[in-house]
């Protein structure tokens, strides 16, 4: 009994590290922009489609797939940034969100034109293997994803909190107009943030899909959902919160799936999200958010 539970938790953490990767991207872009980019998941999906396309049409080389996936995601990220976030006036946050949704629809259709069948194989990063730890097991590609995720967290954390560019990004996200007086160019910050977020997205998409070994257009919706939920669970704007949110979501889903079924798994994750938003809107690790909201409301 207890071994089942522990095994579920291990599985959950493995799958959850994919959610964490997506949540990292979400939390960064929301932290900087204060606007929701709904097309984040779909841009990763289309990027990965370009990756698969290169795999099917150019060469059977896993590094090529990784590279094309990341590059394509970055290009799409820039497209989204220019169209939905830079040009749309800052006061109307809903307009950005709805236009990012419109672009989502567009990206999905482009993906279907690029590769007209719905499901395509996605190359595995290395041969899947089952690692055994006593009575417990973990798949090697998930373990790899988990390690990459932790590494990315460390790199991002150092970048945001230890470098001058990171300081400029944080200053912009805290108070955009004040940062302009410090000589920070807001549009460069936005551009840079989107590039970083797209690179993370590309890596996330590549790792998740190569563990699944297939891709469908539904990946876009899936990625947006999982990333959003994990981000909200952990608390917006916190990097480690995003990671923990992803892992918690993974563990809960794995257990709900084991003791229930796929529908119960999905209901329980939404139920958790809903309850938490009502009781503790700042996320599990985000007392800061409350202060933030307070200050913001004082300023209005």
């Amino acid at each position: 009994m207890i071994t089942d539970f522990v095994q579920n938790c291990i599985d959950g953490i493995m799958v959850g590290s994919g959610y964490s990767l997506l949540a990292l991207g979400f939390t960064l872009v929301f932290g900087v922009l204060k606007r929701l980019n709904l097309s984040y998941g779909p841009s990763i999906m289309l990027g990965a489609y370009v990756g698969t396309w290169s795999f099917l049409n150019i060469a059977d080389n896993i590094w090529l797939v990784l590279l094309t996936t990341i590059c394509a995601t970055v290009v799409i990220g820039i497209y989204v940034e220019q169209l939905c976030f830079r040009a749309v006036s800052k006061e109307t946050t809903i307009a950005s969100m709805v236009s990012s949704f419109a672009i989502w629809m567009q990206l999905e259709e482009i993906a279907l034109h690029l590769l007209p069948e719905r499901t395509y194989p996605f190359p595995a990063f290395f041969d899947s293997g089952l690692l055994e730890f006593g009575p417990f097991t973990a798949r090697s590609e998930y373990l790899f994803m988990f390690v990459v995720m932790l590494l990315l967290l460390l790199i991002l954390h150092a970048f945001i909190y230890r470098t001058r560019i990171g300081l400029a990004i944080r200053a912009y996200s805290d108070h955009p107009s004040a940062s302009a007086y410090m000589g920070i160019d807001g549009s460069s910050v936005l551009f840079l943030a989107f590039i970083i977020v797209s690179i993370i997205g590309g890596i996330a998409g590549f790792l998740i899909l190569s563990a699944d070994s297939q891709i469908t257009p539904f990946f876009g919706l899936w990625a947006t959902f999982k990333g959003l939920i994990a981000m909200m669970l952990g608390g917006i704007g916190s990097l480690s919160g995003a990671v923990l949110g992803g892992l918690i979501l993974g563990v809960i889903e794995a257990n709900a799936f084991w003791y229930g079924d796929p529908v119960i798994r999905d209901i329980s994750s939404f139920m958790l999200l809903f309850t938490m938003l009502i009781i503790r809107p700042g996320g599990i690790f985000g007392h800061k958010i409350e202060i933030h909201q307070k200050i913001a409301s004082e300023r209005v």
Binding site: V88, S89, V98, A102, M105, Q106
Partner: peptide, 21 residues
């Protein structure tokens, strides 16, 4: 048909730039 969302999605995004509400 088949390009509907590519056209419509793009149009909508452009429109929201000029008429955000």
């Amino acid at each position: 048909q088949g390009y509907r969302m590519i056209v419509f999605g793009g149009l909508m995004a452009v429109m929201l730039i000029f008429m955000p509400r």
